[in-house]
């Protein structure tokens, strides 16, 4: 049995336009991951370019569009994605392509930095750790696990339209990770920066982010939480309604 792999190819030094190139490979006997298949192809054609590092779904290097859906090549088994022995691999949509499956992630990282992704506290740190109850710590579950693979943001139509302005699901998930952290004391300031028309309100609940997240996270829910904090504030901080002018 043969697999037909259609690969997005683009080398800026040689190609005026990107094109799809077909590769025929013998279907492996056991179920392998998409990344394993790419590695096999690269042994024969060393010019094929893609990022990869941990090969176990925790570093976020190999996000790509696999038969139409964003995912991590290293934890996507062929059996889950093959359509009649056909596989189409494209770079993550919506970002400039550097070469083949490698996209320029600058805008994605800039949005991440914009939300101030670090703990901010007014109080001097104690001699030991800051205390946090297990229940408060549980609020960070489903948030801190993000691996910045960009599968979500590059599947989001709002991000495609305004990658320079819309924070996007990945960075908003992290914005909420710090809003939800009981140790962070800059909730008011954080919310004020999220209240403009582009930061949170550009999310229209399309839910592609939830559908593709390889870690099973739910940016849409986090965005909802931020919106509700913007409307009602949080009890402890008495946050005013902002951003609805």
């Amino acid at each position: 049995m043969e697999l037909s792999v259609s690969l997005y190819r683009y080398n800026p030094e040689q190609d005026k336009f990107p094109y799809m190139k077909n590769y025929k490979v013998k279907k492996p006997e056991k179920d392998i991951m998409v990344l394993d298949l790419l590695n096999m192809l690269k042994e024969d054609d060393v010019t094929i370019s893609y990022r990869r590092s941990c090969r176990e779904g925790v570093c976020g290097s190999d996000g790509m569009n696999i038969n139409g859906k964003n995912g991590l090549a290293c934890i996507t088994p062929l059996s889950e994605v093959l359509k009649g022995n056909k596989l189409e691999l494209r770079p993550l949509p919506g970002l400039p392509v550097i070469r083949d499956l490698i996209v320029d992630m600058t805008q994605f990282y800039e949005q991440y930095e914009k939300i101030k992704p670090f703990l901010q506290s007014d109080s001097e740190p104690p001699e030991q750790e800051r205390l946090q109850s297990p229940q408060d710590r549980d609020k960070l579950d489903g948030l801190y696990e993000c691996i910045l693979c960009a599968c979500c943001s590059t599947s989001c139509p709002s991000f495609w339209w305004n990658p320079d302005k819309f924070v996007g699901p990945a960075a908003l998930l992290q914005a909420y990770r710090f809003l939800a952290d009981t140790r962070d004391t800059k909730k008011q300031e954080r919310l004020e920066e999220l209240g403009d028309p582009f930061s949170v309100y550009r999310c229209h609940g399309i839910m592609n982010c939830v559908n593709v997240c390889p870690k099973g996270l739910n940016p849409n829910k986090a965005i909802g939480e931020i919106k509700s904090m913007l409307l009602t504030g949080t009890k402890e901080d008495k946050i005013k309604v902002v951003g609805l002018e």
Partner: peptide, 23 residues
């Protein structure tokens, strides 16, 4: 070690917790 670990916590590392709130 303890100083270095407390610093990580102060930086925001989301350690799991015991009931008393410690790491």
């Amino acid at each position: 070690g303890p100083k270095a670990v407390y610093e990580l916590e102060h930086m925001g590392l989301p350690f799991s917790r015991f009931e008393n709130g410690r790491i």
